[in-house]
């Protein structure tokens, strides 16, 4: 696994190393948001708004209307990219890609620089206003390492969510897509992800973004944000030192961090 990534991003293993995928079947979804609440419940997150991403709301079922009051529903949450841009830009290696699929932020390492927030093509990372740490869906990595499905998947009352080995889920998604005359989303976007969706209409109808099949897609971190970190006490002295050290050890990552368009 790590060969695939060089030393571009931190990698790790939770279980058996076999990649897994979340399958979201939009043709079955009724927009009940039980997955959204289940995520909050499992993580003891406060019952904050289900309509926007926050450090306590990791899934957004769109459109932002009451449960069930839309004919189409899109799941917006971390896609667990195979080539996660968020991890590539993180100056302190706080984000790890696990072989089994999860892309996980370590809040202890995170210095709150927000690079990942801007780099994620799907815009699913939030920063906690109090702790100043980045936060997003973890694919329930601790559950995955116990061979359990993510809790949102367990919660779905109509079987619109599924979880399993990547090859099985992909096959299932294709079978279902051809059955309903729809298409899949997530297999190729951003070089491939570990969330695959079955859509019955085009992705635009679901408000899903068009993302090129480029690994580590081009992105933009505002210049102000980058400079701020160099010249202000933001992110703390240890954070800066760690970022500096890692820049020296892994100079290639600077490409992503400071010359992002040259991905």
């Amino acid at each position: 696994m790590s060969e695939k990534y060089g030393n571009l991003i931190p990698t790790g293993r939770l279980l058996d190393g076999k990649p897994r995928t979340i399958l979201f079947d939009a043709t079955k979804c009724i927009g009940c948001r039980q997955c959204v609440h289940a995520c909050k419940d499992w993580h003891d997150h406060p019952r904050t708004s289900v309509y926007e991403f926050s450090s306590s709301n990791w899934i957004q079922m769109d459109p932002p209307v009451l449960e069930g009051l839309s004919p189409l529903w899109a799941r917006n949450s971390c896609m667990h990219c195979e080539y996660p841009m968020c991890a590539a830009v993180c100056p302190v290696e706080a984000i790890t890609k696990y072989d089994e699929g999860p892309v996980v932020i370590d809040p202890v390492k995170c210095i709150g620089c927000e690079y990942c927030v801007y780099a994620c093509p799907w815009g699913v990372i939030s920063k906690d206003e109090v702790t100043q740490k980045a936060s997003k869906c973890t694919m329930c990595a601790p559950r995955v390492s116990e061979e359990k499905s993510p809790f949102c998947v367990v919660a779905c009352p109509v079987g619109a969510l599924d979880f399993g080995l990547e090859e099985d889920m992909t096959a299932k998604a294709h079978a279902r897509a051809s059955e309903v005359g729809g298409e899949t989303y997530g297999e190729n976007e951003a070089g491939g992800t570990q969330v695959v969706m079955v859509l019955k209409e085009g992705k635009a109808a679901y408000g899903l973004k068009f993302i090129l099949p480029t690994k580590y897609p081009a992105h933009k971190i505002p210049l102000g944000l980058m400079l701020k970190d160099l010249f202000t006490p933001r992110c703390g002295i240890p954070g800066k030192l760690r970022a500096l050290y890692l820049a020296v050890v892994h100079p290639k990552r600077l490409l992503y961090r400071y010359w992002p368009r040259r991905a």
Partner: peptide, 18 residues
């Protein structure tokens, strides 16, 4: 008719509907 199940909070019995 077009029918949508509209369950209660975290209940999988799926009673309510539109």
């Amino acid at each position: 008719n077009r029918i949508t199940l509209r369950p209660c909070f975290q209940c999988q019995r799926l009673c309510p509907w539109d």
